[in-house]
Design a protein around this nucleic acid. Structure first.
Length: 915
RNA sequence: GCCCAGGUGGCGGAAUUGGUAGACGCAGCAGACUCAAAAUCUGCCGUUCGCAAGGAUGUGCUGGUUCGAUUCCAGUCCUGGGCACCA
C-alpha cells in the first residue's frame, strides 16, 4: 500500500465537514482558547504561498491546544473592502462586490485544500452589510463619545453637553475654540454648537492635506505616487486641502503606551509602537516677529539650547509664511512653495541630503537675549509635527547644522569644546557656555531651569508632545463602509442607529466625483440626502473583527457581552510586523473605546502577538521613461530618467518580459512602446515582500496538488523560524514529502501491506518516544515549528533504523504529528483501529524517567580548543574528572609536558584545560 | 533620513542560560538494487594543508570582554519591513 495523499486528503476533508468536527460552541466545560490570524484581503491574485505561513502556524497551535483539552476558537474571514477591488472595477467595469465574492470563493477553496480547522459558520466579511452595519454602529459610538481627560477614558458626549449647559467651557481644557459661558453656549446656533463639539468627538471632521491628481480628478494613496507623479499615467500630483474624517487616536496615546506593559508583544514590536506614538517632553514657546503682530510658536524638547538658536524654520505649509514674507523675498518663496507642493512627504523625509529652503526676509527675536534671528522655510520641517515650526540650533542638531552650513548662516557655539565646528553634537551632558542664566549648567538640568524661566516670563509652557497624529479616517473612494452621517448647513449629523446599515449604493461608474469627492458624489439620490460622499478606510472593519467571530450572527449587537466575556482577549494573534503601527494601534484604540463605554470587558484586544516573517517574493521591474509611455529594457535604463514599475512575475520568463501580455495587463500599457536589448525586454529583479501589489506571488494550489496538503504544511514550517523573513523557494519540498512517505512505511509495507504490530516498546524505544514528546511539546509551545519538523524526521529515521513498527509507539507519534499533518495522521489513526478522530485524542504525557543518563561524552578542550571526547560518569567529582582528563593521551600530547594552570569543569557540559 | 529586524556551508536552516559550529532537509558526488528508469537504501559532503593520522582556518566586517563568543559589548557595512490613503 502506497501513501496516496490525494485520496487520503480528500477523504478526510469530506468526513470532517460531514461530521462537523470543527464546529465551535460558546458554551463548554473546557477552558476557552482563542487563536487568531490577521485576516486576509481577498485579492484577485488568490492566495500565495506567503499567506498560509501564519495560518498553518496558528492551525498547528490550535490543534495542539485542542489536544491539550481546550475549547479552541480559530476562525477566519475576509477583509473584503479595499482599493485593489475598486481599481479593478475602474479598469474592467465589474462591480467590486462581484469580484470580491469571486475572490473569496477562490480563497476559501485554496484554504480548504490545506486542511485548516476553521469553523466556517463563523466566517465574516467586512463588506457584508450584516457586518458593516456594526462597523457603522461603532463609528456612531465614536462620534457620540469624547475623551474625558480627567477620567482618562471615553464617555458619552451627552456628559459634555450637560457640562456646557451648566458650566460653559470653564470646567474643561478647551480645544481650538474660545471659552464660553453656559448662557453663551445655549445661545449658540446648532451649527456653532456642532462645530465646537467636533473638537471633542472621537471621530471628527476637519480639513487635511491629501495627494491630489488633477488629471485623474482624484486623491491618491502615497504608494500610488511615484516621484511626484501618479503611478497610473504619470500625471503631476500636488497637495490639496480637503475635508476629512479623523479618528482622535491621540487622546489615547498614553493609554496605548500604558497598555503595552500588559501584553506579550515582542520588545521590538513595542518599541515600534512607542516610537510611532513618539511621546516627548519639552516646551512650547513663542518668538515675536520684528515689524509684525505675528508670533511664531515652536515646540522643542531642548529648551536648554535656547541661546544657540541661529535661525527659525517654518514648514512651507505654515499659515504665517505668506504673512511674514517680505516683498523682496516674495518671488523666491512662491517658487519654493511651488517646488514643495510637488514633493511627497515620503520624499521630504527620505532625501535629507538634498538641502533646500528659502529665506522669508523676516526676523524673529530671541525672547531671552533679544537677538534677531532669520526666519526660513524648509521642507525638512513638517507641518503635521509639533507646531510646524522649529527653533534651529545648528551646534546641537545635525539637520540644523547642515542647513546652516549650506546657507552660510553663522553658528553660535553653546557647547564649548564639545562642538568642533564640523558636525553637530546632540549631547545632553555638556556644560553650557554663552548661555546667560544657563551658562555653567549641565544641559540635563538646564532643561528644567529653562522651562521654569519660560513659564515665569509667560512666553510658553511645559508641554508633552506626541509624534502620532490623529488618523485620517475617510477615503475618496467607493469600496468601503459609507459613513452613517448626513450633512446639513456645513454640520455633520449622525444617523439614528435604527437606520443602519446605511448600504453602499450601486454606482454606474467608479470614477471620482466632482471636486475630488468620492464616486458616491455622482449618485443623485445620495447627494439629495446629503450623505457623506467619502467612505471609511480599510482599517475600519479590521479594527474590531476579532470580536465579531465570537458572536458572528448576532442581529442585535456587534457582539453579545456574554460571548466576549466567555472568550475574552485573543490568546494568540498571528500576523506580520508590517501591521505593527497601523492595524494594531487602531484595533487597540477601538478596543479601549468599547471597553470605556462598557460594551466589552477587556481593554487590550490581543494578549499575545506572534509575528510571522514575510515570505518574500522575487519581483520583476519595468522602467518607464519619465513623462512618457515608453519602456526601456534593464540594461539600457541608465541612459534615461525612468520610473520603476512592478511587472507581474507571471508574464516574465526568468527576466524576459512577454510584451504582449504586458500590454494586455493594464489599459495604460496598451499603447506602450519598448526599447529592447537583443530584441528582448529584460526586467530588473529584487527580493522583496510577496504581495499582490508587487505582482510576485506563487500559488500554493500547485504544490498541494503535487505533494499534498500535509507536505505543504510541513514544508512551510520547515523553511525556517516563523518570525523570520525568507524568500520563497520551492526547492526542498521533496525532502518533507520523503519524510511523510518514510513515516507511512512504518505502518505499511508497499508490497505486503500492514506491518505495524502490538509488541511492547522496549527502553530504547521509550527513550526515543519521550525525547520526541518533550521536544515537540516545547517546540510547539514556542512556535518553533521548523525544529519540530526536524524532530519528527529524526524520530522516524531512528525508528526506521531499528525497525520499530510497534503500535504502542506509533499511536503516540501520530498524536504528536496530527497538528502538523492532520490528514495522514487521521488516516493512520484509523488504520491502527483507534476509535474516533485523532483530533480528540489526548496529547501524550512526557515522562522524564525514560531520559535519565548515567554517562556523558564530555568535550575536552585545551586552551579553549576542542581536542577530544571522553565519556565520564555524570556522578564524577571535579578531582575525579581532572584525573581522567589528565591521564588521556590526547590531552597529554597537547600539554606538551607543561602542567595545567587551571582545569575548568562544568558538570554535564564540558572540560577545559588551561595551560 | 528616522524606527524595527536579520546577516552561519552551494542553498533553507540547527546550536537550552557564554561551553563539541553546521542537527534536519535540499542540491551535489560515489556506490547498491534494476535489462533500464523511477522509488528505495548506503557512504561522502565548510575552506584549506596532508597519502593518512592529524593540523590550520571558519558564523558580514573591525575591535573588546572571557579559560572559552554564532551567542555579551562598541563601532561599521549590507539586506528586509514600517514611516500615516496598499492591506
Amino acid at each position: 500500500m502506497e501513501y496516496n495523499f490525494r485520496e487520503i486528503e480528500s477523504k478526510w476533508q469530506l468526513k470532517w465537514v460531514e461530521q462537523q468536527v470543527y464546529k465551535v460552541c460558546n458554551d463548554s466545560v473546557k477552558p476557552p482558547f482563542y487563536v487568531l490570524d490577521m485576516f486576509p484581503y481577498p485579492s484577485g491574485a488568490g492566495l500565495h504561498v506567503g499567506h498560509p505561513l501564519g495560518y498553518i502556524a496558528s492551525d498547528i497551535f490550535s490543534r495542539y491546544k485542542r489536544l491539550r483539552g481546550f475549547n479552541v476558537l480559530h476562525p477566519i474571514g475576509f477583509d473584503s473592502f479595499g482599493l485593489p477591488a475598486e481599481q479593478y472595477a475602474l479598469e474592467t467595469g465589474q462591480h467590486p462586490a462581484d469580484t470580491t465574492e469571486k475572490n473569496i470563493d477562490t480563497f476559501k477553496n485554496q484554504l480548504n485544500k490545506i486542511g485548516f480547522c476553521y469553523d466556517w459558520e463563523r466566517e465574516i466579511r467586512t463588506s457584508n452589510p450584516d457586518y458593516y452595519k456594526w462597523t457603522q454602529w461603532i463609528f456612531l459610538q465614536l462620534f457620540k463619545s469624547w475623551f474625558n481627560k480627567e477620567k482618562n477614558k471615553a464617555e458619552s458626549i451627552d456628559f459634555l453637553l450637560k457640562d456646557f449647559e451648566t458650566n460653559g467651557s470653564s470646567k474643561i481644557n478647551t480645544r481650538n475654540h474660545s471659552p464660553f459661558t453656559a448662557e453663551e453656549w445655549i445661545s449658540f446656533s446648532d451649527k456653532k454648537q456642532e462645530e465646537i463639539l467636533m473638537n471633542y468627538r472621537l471621530v471628527f471632521s476637519a480639513f487635511g492635506e491629501v495627494n491630489w491628481c488633477e488629471a485623474l480628478g482624484t486623491v491618491l494613496a502615497n504608494d500610488e505616487v511615484i516621484n511626484g507623479a501618479s503611478e497610473r499615467g504619470g500625471h503631476p500630483v500636488v497637495k490639496k486641502k480637503m475635508r476629512q474624517w479623523y479618528l482622535r487616536i491621540t487622546d489615547y496615546a498614553d493609554r496605548l503606551l500604558e497598555g503595552l506593559n500588559r501584553v506579550e508583544f515582542s520588545d521590538s514590536m513595542k518599541d515600534m509602537q512607542r516610537n510611532w506614538i513618539g511621546k516627548s517632553e519639552g516646551a512650547e514657546l513663542e518668538f515675536e516677529v520684528i515689524d509684525s503682530e505675528n508670533k511664531i510658536k515652536v515646540y522643542t524638547t531642548r529648551p536648554d539650547t535656547i541661546f544657540g538658536v541661529d535661525f527659525m524654520v517654518l514648514a512651507p505649509e505654515h499659515e504665517l509664511v505668506t504673512k511674514i514674507t517680505t516683498t523682496e523675498q516674495r518671488s523666491g518663496i512662491d517658487e519654493y512653495l511651488k517646488y514643495v507642493k510637488s514633493r511627497s512627504d515620503r520624499e521630504r523625509m527620505t532625501e535629507v541630503k538634498q538641502i533646500t529652503g528659502c529665506f522669508t526676509g523676516s526676523y524673529a527675536i530671541n525672547p531671552f537675549n533679544g537677538k534677531q534671528i532669520p526666519i526660513w522655510i524648509a521642507e525638512y520641517v513638517l507641518a503635521g509635527y509639533g507646531t510646524g515650526a522649529i527653533m534651529a540650533v545648528p551646534c546641537g542638531d545635525q539637520r540644523d547644522f547642515s542647513f546652516a552650513k549650506h546657507f552660510n548662516i553663522p553658528i553660535t557655539n553653546i557647547l564649548g569644546d564639545l562642538f568642533d565646528g564640523n558636525e553637530a553634537n546632540s549631547t545632553k551632558e555638556a556644560v553650557l557656555v554663552n548661555s546667560d542664566f544657563l551658562t555653567g549648567l549641565k544641559m540635563n538640568e538646564a532643561i528644567k531651569v529653562a522651562i521654569e524661566k519660560i513659564e515665569e516670563r509667560g512666553i510658553g509652557r511645559k508641554k508633552t508632545n506626541y509624534k502620532m497624529r490623529d488618523a485620517g479616517f475617510s477615503r475618496q473612494r467607493y469600496w468601503g463602509e459609507p459613513f452613517p452621517v448626513k450633512w446639513d448647513n456645513g454640520a455633520a449629523y449622525a444617523l439614528d442607529e435604527s437606520q443602519l446599515p446605511l448600504e453602499l449604493p450601486h454606482v454606474e461608474s467608479y470614477g471620482p466625483g466632482p471636486e475630488g469627492e468620492g464616486p458616491l458624489a455622482n449618485i443623485k439620490s445620495w447627494k439629495i440626502e446629503n450623505y457623506e460622499t467619502s467612505t471609511m478606510p480599510g482599517f475600519a472593519g479590521s479594527s474590531w473583527y476579532f470580536l465579531r467571530y465570537m458572536d458572528p450572527h448576532n442581529n442585535n449587537s456587534f457582539c453579545d457581552k456574554k460571548a466576549s466575556d466567555y472568550w475574552g482577549q485573543v490568546d494568540v494573534y498571528v500576523g506580520g510586523t508590517e501591521h505593527a503601527v497601523g492595524h494594531l494601534l487602531y484595533s487597540r484604540m477601538w478596543t479601549k473605546v468599547l471597553y470605556d463605554l462598557g460594551l466589552i470587558g477587556f481593554d487590550e484586544p490581543f494578549k499575545k502577538l506572534v509575528n510571522q516573517g514575510m515570505i518574500q517574493g522575487s519581483s520583476r521591474f519595468a522602467y518607464r521613461i519619465k513623462g512618457t509611455n515608453q519602456f526601456v529594457s534593464f540594461g539600457l535604463k541608465n541612459q534615461y530618467v525612468t520610473d520603476t514599475l512592478h511587472v507581474d512575475v507571471n508574464f516574465v520568463d526568468g527576466v524576459e518580459m512577454d510584451i504582449h501580455a504586458f500590454k494586455k495587463w493594464k489599459p495604460d500599457f496598451a499603447n506602450a512602446e519598448f526599447i529592447l536589448e537583443d530584441g528582448k525586454y529584460i526586467c530588473g529583479t529584487e527580493v522583496e515582500k510577496m504581495s499582490k501589489s508587487k505582482f510576485n506571488t506563487v500559488n500554493p494550489d500547485d504544490l498541494v496538488n503535487k505533494y499534498g496538503a500535509d507536505t505543504f504544511r510541513m514544508y512551510e514550517m520547515f523553511l525556517g523560524p516563523i518570525e523570520q523573513s525568507k524568500p520563497w523557494d520551492t526547492k526542498g519540498i521533496e525532502g518533507v514529502h520523503r519524510f511523510l512517505r518514510k513515516l507511512w512505511r512504518l505502518f505499511n509495507n508497499e508490497v505486503s501491506g500492514k506491518i505495524w504490530n502490538d509488541e511492547k516498546a522496549n527502553n530504547q524505544e521509550l527513550k526515543i518516544l519521550h525525547k520526541t514528546i518533550k521536544k515537540i511539546e516545547s517546540d510547539t509551545e514556542n512556535f518553533s515549528f521548523n525544529t519540530a519538523v526536524s524532530t519528527f524526521m529524526v524520530c522516524v529515521n531512528e525508528l526506521s533504523e531499528i525497525s520499530c513498527y510497534k503500535k504502542e509507539f506509533l499511536e503516540k507519534l501520530i498524536i504528536l504529528l496530527s497538528p502538523y499533518a492532520p490528514h495522514i495522521a487521521e488516516e493512520l489513526w484509523s488504520q491502527l483501529g483507534k476509535e474516533g478522530s485523532v483530533l480528540n485524542a489526548t496529547f501524550p504525557a512526557f515522562e522524564e524517567k525514560y531520559l535519565i543518563e548515567t554517562d556523558k561524552e564530555y568535550p575536552i578542550s585545551v586552551n579553549g580548543k576542542m581536542r577530544t571526547n571522553i565519556s565520564i560518569s555524570l556522578e564524577a567529582s571535579q578531582s575525579e574528572v581532572e584525573d581522567i582528563v589528565l591521564s588521556n593521551d590526547v590531552v597529554q600530547k597537547w600539554l606538551e609536558g607543561k602542567s595545567p594552570k587551571k582545569i575548568i569543569f562544568v558538570k554535564g557540559k564540558m572540560v577545559n584545560v588551561v595551560v
